[in-house]
Design a protein around this nucleic acid. Structure first.
Lengths: 197, 197
DNA sequence: GTCTATAAGCAGATAGAC
DNA sequence: GTCTATCTGCTTATAGAC
């Protein structure tokens, strides 16, 4: 690997190209889910996507870029979801926290294995500016929300709550738990306990 | 890789051999800490340990076995620490939970980068019986403790608390946090909140 | 027991035909 | 734009000398 490149080679504008990119990303996602990172080779992804390696490299300059884009999309979806939740506050700390966590749990439980794999993968990738921004956005949204509610050290609290949620949800996913409501309420208990004690 | 083998080739009984094994494991740990999993090749480990690859393979049948042993030792130390804490209960739920978490935080903050790397690595390794047992032990200790205090669904609660702690401590370590007491008290707040709400 | 040298295999990446 | 074929480099693992 000469140099690690994270940006996609080009932002496809043709409809056909978009479909190809989507197929490649979806293939990568499925391999991650079923066989883990070690099985995710560029050849395996191309095979699964029904294209050749050559085509893959047409759209992604390397394996890292492929993974980065996957994370970007996933994280983007989560951030949008959380942002939407933040947009309609109940002005009651506990209810709002519950709503946030519900959104996060719903997101992570949609494709638990994928979400987990990407959570573990993320810290190992050299994040480009856009992905870092997405993460900062998430922390900022939560932090701003906490500050509005008069929580002390809102930034640290935001980091802690995100970490706590990630930890619990990833672990639950690993044991095959699918009870969205139950998990959500347990995480909320911990989060509210953190905030109100 | 022909077949994944997890057991060490032999349990060294000679003093010299023990030293070699320790050197190899420590070298692997340091590489994990400083450069991550990708940099952990058998050659790199042997180099850093001051032995040749040949010697490495004398003691470990493969890279996987090396990592498995590293996890075994780390996990063993943590479990012993937690077990020791469990042995002297204060018979007050909150104080006992705080003691558990303090022990866990102390353990994870000793070598944060290593602890994190192994936490992430563990789910990707085919665990042998001994390691699985260690993890079960940890959950069992916490679960038995919770049951004694009349907590409902103690097994689920144990899993949740372990996950919550792991998530928060790993994240804190990643941001370079070293304030043991502060972190410990924040995690305890979340844990007690989970239990008492 | 430990070393050096090397075999074997594979992943990432590219060139060039169509 | 996409494919096939191929190259290069690296990693795991072993053989055989000392």
């Amino acid at each position: 690997m000469s140099k690690i490149v994270v940006d996609p080679r080009k932002r496809p504008r043709q409809r056909r190209s978009e479909a190809t990119v989507d197929a490649i990303l979806e293939a990568a996602a499925r391999i991650l889910e079923s066989d883990g990172l070690d099985a995710l080779t560029t050849n395996a992804v191309a095979d699964r996507a029904g294209v050749s390696v050559g085509s893959l490299y047409q759209y992604f300059p390397g394996k890292t870029a492929l993974l980065a884009e996957l994370i970007r999309r996933e994280r983007g979806a989560l951030v949008r979801r959380i942002a939407a939740t933040a947009a309609k506050p109940a002005s009651n700390l506990e209810a709002d926290v519950a709503a946030f966590i519900d959104a996060a749990v719903a997101h992570q439980l949609t494709r638990p294995a994928l979400a987990r794999a990407l959570d573990f993968l993320e810290p190992t990738l050299p994040l480009d500016a856009e992905s870092s921004t997405l993460n900062a956005n998430l922390a900022d949204i939560v932090s701003a929300f906490l500050m509005r509610h008069g929580v002390t050290a809102p930034e640290q609290a935001a980091r802690d709550l995100i970490a706590l949620t990630k930890g619990m949800v990833d672990a639950a996913g690993m044991t095959g738990e699918t009870d969205h409501a139950g998990l959500s309420s347990r995480v909320t208990r911990a989060a509210v306990g953190y905030l109100l004690r």
